[in-house]
């Protein structure tokens, strides 16, 4: 339905996005994952026709939309990261304004406003002034404003940043309903792994302006299928011990925090006996040891060498 081909964007010679290829099929829910500064917002700004790419194409149903964005804008709803609302107006007045610039009038506009408010669970607060709302409520109205023209594709740019868990759950539930019940195609960007895991059928992982991995959750996890994530708790941390663990055969990543080591190691690498030997040598006591099934967070760590919130 919507596709980018070798999409790139440079700002004064600095490449913010490089050769990004991604696609959204009708009715799909796709996650775009990456740490701050990975190029997610630039990518979706280009996909939503707000930013002109330096090179590459954006295709809607096979047709290039660059230079003629109207067709794409008709089917697109965008929820920006910032609260793009008039803070002085009520929730209802905001929705009335954003509906009217989509040429909605009279009964039709009224029905769409009420439906959008129902969808985000703020029907009873529609007369409230936006600036008096909590951060979560503002974000929900921010979403409602993008739903008035009933878009086929909804792009959400980190819609849960800085809000309480209750509002966050409400937003996730709203997005899920839009996808499952109304068949809206979703592109959801976030740096919260658990949100993307919960909502999306497929994922793109971005880092340093490029897509570094793509696929379903299972496909991404299979990147680590030959490896195990092991957590080792020690009585104290010893730098030379950690260094020797890193140098051990079959170890691909070691992360130390507090008194814990997170070790990603090849399956069958005889990790436990090697660790015990090393611990004896360095007079370090192993308090606890367990092996975890790898998560998407581990995949990200494996691919980028850093965590999502770095």
């Amino acid at each position: 339905m919507l596709e980018t081909v070798d999409l790139s964007k440079s700002f004064k010679g600095n490449k913010a996005v490089q050769n990004v290829n991604l696609y959204l099929d009708q009715g799909e829910s796709v996650g775009l994952l990456g740490p701050n500064g990975a190029g997610k917002s630039t990518t979706i700004s280009m996909m939503s026709t707000l930013l002109k790419p330096t090179s590459g194409e954006i295709k809607l149903n096979g047709a290039n939309t660059l230079g003629k964005p109207d067709e794409l804008r008709k089917v697109l709803g965008v929820v920006p990261q910032e609260i793009a609302l008039y803070q002085e107006l009520s929730a209802y007045e905001n929705l009335r304004f954003f509906g009217s610039i989509y040429n909605l009038k009279g009964q039709k506009l009224e029905k769409r406003i009420q439906d959008a408010l129902e969808m985000v669970g703020l029907k009873d607060r529609q007369k409230g002034i936006v600036k008096t709302f909590s951060g979560g409520m503002k974000r929900r109205i921010n979403i409602a404003a993008a739903l008035l023209h009933e878009p086929e594709i909804l792009i959400l740019d980190e819609p849960t940043v800085g809000i309480d868990p209750q509002s966050r759950n409400h937003i996730l539930e709203t997005v899920k309903n839009l996808n499952k019940e109304k068949g809206t195609t979703i592109l959801y960007t976030s740096h919260y792994m658990e949100e993307v895991e919960q909502l999306c059928d497929r994922l793109y992982i971005m880092d340093h302006g490029a897509v570094i991995a793509a696929g379903t959750k299972l496909e991404l996890l299979s990147i680590l299928s030959s490896e195990d994530t092991n957590k080792v708790e020690l009585n104290h941390l010893d730098e030379s011990f950690i260094q020797e663990v890193k140098d051990m055969e079959g170890i691909s990543k070691v992360e130390a925090s507090n008194l814990q080591l997170k070790i990603i190691a090849k399956k069958g690498s005889n990790l436990i006996s090697n660790l015990v030997h090393l611990a004896e040598k360095h007079h370090v006591q192993i308090v606890n040891f367990h092996t975890e099934t790898p998560s998407l967070e581990d995949v990200f760590l494996h691919l980028t060498g850093r965590t999502l919130r770095d």
Partner: peptide
């Protein structure tokens, strides 16, 4: 808000 307007017709 300006970007929202640009996306509208």
């Amino acid at each position: 808000v300006w970007d929202r307007m640009i996306l509208a017709p």
